[in-house]
Design a protein around this nucleic acid. Structure first.
Lengths: 340, 340
DNA sequence: CCTGGCACTCGACTGTAACGAGTGCCAGTC
DNA sequence: GACTGGCACTCGTTACAGTCGAGTGCCAGG
């Protein structure tokens, strides 16, 4: 049980070497590369203990050691300091994000930036509707019986939906509808809208009622029930880095998982406050991703969190570096959103 | 030069066998599986000719033959009939596309459907703005000096952009702006708007002029210059089918190419009328994709083309099947768009 | 022009042997 | 008691030789 300081140092050294060389690390190479002040034999004894405790393992009998998921966990929790970003990285972040013209642009730039800086797969969730408020609802007549509903959220998201009205509605009535809907809903959190929408229908004049009812159905359906989350992805080519050694030779399961929005949302969707989350290997709930690790965090203007972002890569990744980058990017994005 | 009917039949047989087995095909196996009515020796002679002409090649001296890009080309052009879709496939298409609620939904469903049916990577271009007309422009005040411009195109696309006004603009003026802008631009093709926008500025009253000028700049920039094309992608996991044999062992270049919207646009972006395009291996202009083939076609409501869609896979793909599927899906999507 | 036969090529697979990185253990030292 | 040097051992990797067999090209004969 007792892991003294040196054993921890050995574990740290193993993780660092393995991450950078991608090869099982032996006792001799270890003492050469790190100033541990002891002989290989001693390191071997320590390794034996570490292996017993499940922090490292041998791929085969006569090979060096490789960290286990548990070993990475200990490393992340107790053995690593978050690396400060290099000035070059800071500059890259600013340069990349300055000049974004709308939310789509911000999200796209962010996800590419993350992929580039971390050389991993990057995932960015669009600001969640559930955590947004209605800024404005616009009703645009497409024909006499068709309406395009456009909702603009305070987070910058814009959602639209075509509504098939039960009968023709004159332009004046549309204006009425628009005013009523905005009076009631503007400023409300999306999650609080259902009763308000309900009230809208009940309070509406008999003339507007049929149209309002249809409209209400669509609003509830689109904005609340079908929690319309969006995700942007970049850097999948980075999965091929480390030439098939990571991910035990098959990208298949990973690529499949990355196609499922639901999976990605669970991975990087914001949950707790603003703490950075690290999921290592099989800590992950999806079988397809048991060979991968995820570093993610929430972002948002100021202290509130409106969405999540993160990176996904082999368990053998540079945790301190990636954690630092993910955090920094999240902070910048938050500031950017706060400006709008 | 003279490739008689039997030689062509041999080539067709080679392509079909190789596509289905993924293994070089020899003369003996060929006569066994296809009723060619001649002996292996004869087939061998034909093969020698086909090889001389560059339609097939031997991976190594004592192996069977494999089609070259040129061989596939001949196959596609002269030796294959487009396979009719199975009823199951037709049903799948309908089931998949019915119930789409908006353009995003249509595009997402389409790309997934294509990926699933062809078991390849599917790419769908959103209806191109350049080929759309303005249906309505909405100006939503966000604050006294900020406006959200929302453009709704006849193809269902909705683009938005935040505008920073040079000074505060009262609500009434926004109404004015909205009316003027719509009077001028509604119904116009996006590509025809620049002079109209210019006229708007010139014709505007001194009071509205500063705001209109800013607005005009943004409109031109967003809607015309930055030809804001969008692309949806699905089925990347299908690249791992055929276990690294296709794509000479590295998905790297393919994944990289798929991340570049520009590349994808060039690949499946509509160009000529509605003909289906097939790009085989090195016919492709991108080095990264010289091991891949692309089948693509345009789609749109009625006869007009508003965007492209297609699939990308190994040169060793089922061309007749994929061509049929791509065409069928494009037709269905076109019908769907025509309804809106 | 097609066919059967035959010699030839060459990759895939198998078995053996040498190599060496890395280990575990143990006896000895500080 | 903790560390160290030494040593026997394991086992994956590499190299090499030999066999097998699919597939070929060529040729003589129908």
């Amino acid at each position: 049980m007792g892991l003294d300081d040196r054993k921890l140092a050995v574990l740290r050294a193993i993780v660092e070497d393995y991450v950078s060389t991608q090869e099982p690390v032996g006792s001799k190479a270890l003492v050469e590369r790190h100033q541990l002040g002891v002989s290989p034999a001693t390191v071997r004894n320590d390794m034996a203990v570490l292996e017993e405790e499940g922090y490292i393992r041998q791929p085969h009998t006569s090979a060096g050691r490789v960290p286990t998921d548990r070993g990475y966990r200990l490393f992340v929790d107790r053995l690593s300091r978050v690396k400060p970003l290099s000035p070059a990285e800071r500059r890259a972040i600013e340069r990349f994000l300055v000049g974004a013209v709308d939310l789509d642009d911000v999200v796209h730039r962010t996800v590419r930036l993350l992929a580039q800086l971390t050389r991993q797969v990057a995932v960015v969730q669009y600001p969640s509707l559930a955590r947004s408020s209605v800024r404005h609802l616009e009703l645009v007549p497409i024909s006499t019986t068709r309406l395009m509903v456009v909702m603009i959220a305070d987070t910058g998201r814009v959602e639209q939906r075509l509504v098939e009205l039960p009968g023709p509605v004159p332009a004046d009535d549309v204006t009425d509808l628009r005013r009523k809907v905005n009076e009631k809903l503007a400023g409300a959190r999306l999650s609080d809208t259902p009763p308000l929408v309900q009230a809208l229908v009940e309070e509406s004049s008999p003339k507007l009622r049929p149209a309002m009812t249809t409209l209400a159905t669509v609003l509830l359906e689109t904005l609340v029930e079908r929690h319309e989350e969006r995700i942007a992805l970049a850097g999948t080519a980075n999965l091929t880095r480390g030439g098939l050694l990571d991910f035990q030779g098959s990208l298949r399961p990973i690529l499949e998982a990355l196609e499922e929005e639901v999976v990605l949302l669970k991975l990087i969707g914001e949950t707790e406050p603003s703490t950075t989350r690290v999921l290592i290997g099989d800590e992950n709930e999806f079988d397809n991703l048991r060979a991968a690790s995820v570093v993610s965090t929430g972002y948002g203007p100021g202290a509130t969190i409106v969405g999540g972002l993160g990176v996904l890569g082999p368990t053998r990744m540079d945790y301190p570096g990636n954690i630092a980058t993910v955090r920094a990017v999240a902070r910048y994005v938050g500031e950017l959103l706060a400006q709008n």
